[in-house]
């Protein structure tokens, strides 16, 4: 009886795993075989790269990908700098109103920029930043999540280290750079991976704030590419999908362990 239950549980686990991977497996199948095999499985179906070529020709993927990479990089760079400075001030400096400021920061954990698309669009239109990388990136620079995560990490750094650095004559910025940043490396890695996968996949805000392929990221590009009106067939859509998730997927497979641990660490902090 117990053995039977055990096998049942193992079977269920793998079945679920298969279901969870299935969309990806299907996309790979459809993309690498001729269109007539998109809805038909055959062991002897010929392999082809044709779908990838056609998808590549039908949408400016290279441009979209460059846009996504540029936007993701900009956001991450901005976040790392701004969050580090703010997190240090909140973790290690005493000043009037610290509690209130921290509460104001935490507020953004609930009210993410996506919900405020209407007003943020107006703000960026006022700044003439619609359809630019800056327009997509700016609302995400001050990440409450990043500030919170780094603040928690900085608090675990022994204060003696900071005092020693101060006696050596280090300025505040030098202390942050030489003492705190190196000791928080795992947190930086965790935050970076979470941020990259969030912004690589982000859709609603970029959709609102971009108009042309000049700044449109992959996700927004894919939503146009996949629209039924454009009359693309499934094999080509699958190929396009794989092109759009490819870089992130490769990154995920290479840094699988770090990815999982990063999300874990980011979640329990």
């Amino acid at each position: 009886m117990n053995r039977l239950l055990h096998y049942l549980s193992v079977t269920l686990a793998w079945l679920l795993g298969l279901v969870w991977l299935f969309p990806l497996i299907y996309a790979i199948w459809a993309a690498t075989h001729p269109p007539e095999f998109a809805t038909r499985f055959s062991l002897f179906a010929p392999l082809t790269m044709q779908n990838f070529y056609e998808a590549w020709d039908q949408a400016p993927f290279l441009r979209y990908m460059l846009n996504t990479i540029a936007i993701t990089t900009m956001i991450l760079a901005g976040q790392l700098v701004l969050c580090t400075l703010a997190a240090y001030a909140l973790a290690r400096m005493e000043f009037t109103g610290r509690g209130i400021i921290f509460a104001l920061v935490l507020m953004q954990l609930m009210v993410v920029p996506e919900i405020l698309i209407v007003e943020n669009y107006q703000t960026l239109a006022g700044l003439n930043l619609i359809d630019t990388y800056w327009g997509v990136a700016l609302p995400y620079f001050a990440s409450a999540f990043g500030i919170f995560l780094l603040r928690q990490t900085f608090k675990t750094v022994p204060e003696d280290l900071e005092n020693a650095a101060r006696i050596e004559g280090c300025s505040v910025l030098a202390i942050i750079w030489k003492v705190y940043v190196p000791l928080a490396k795992p947190t930086y890695l965790a935050f970076s991976l979470v941020s990259i996968s969030y912004h690589w996949n982000n859709f609603l805000w970029p959709l609102v704030v971009t108009n042309t392929e000049k700044s449109r990221p992959l996700t927004v590009g894919m939503s146009i590419f996949g629209a039924p009106e454009s009359g693309v067939d499934w094999s080509i859509i699958s190929a396009g999908t794989l092109i759009s998730v490819g870089p992130l997927l490769v990154l995920f497979i290479l840094f699988q362990r770090q990815f999982v641990q990063s999300f874990m660490q980011a979640g329990i902090k």
Partner: peptide, 21 residues
């Protein structure tokens, strides 16, 4: 890995695959 993969895939891209299903 299998369970975690959907988390790192963009919703928009995989929605196209689900549209086919």
């Amino acid at each position: 890995t299998a369970y975690f993969t959907p988390t790192v895939l963009p919703m928009i891209s995989v929605a196209n695959i689900w549209l086919f299903f």
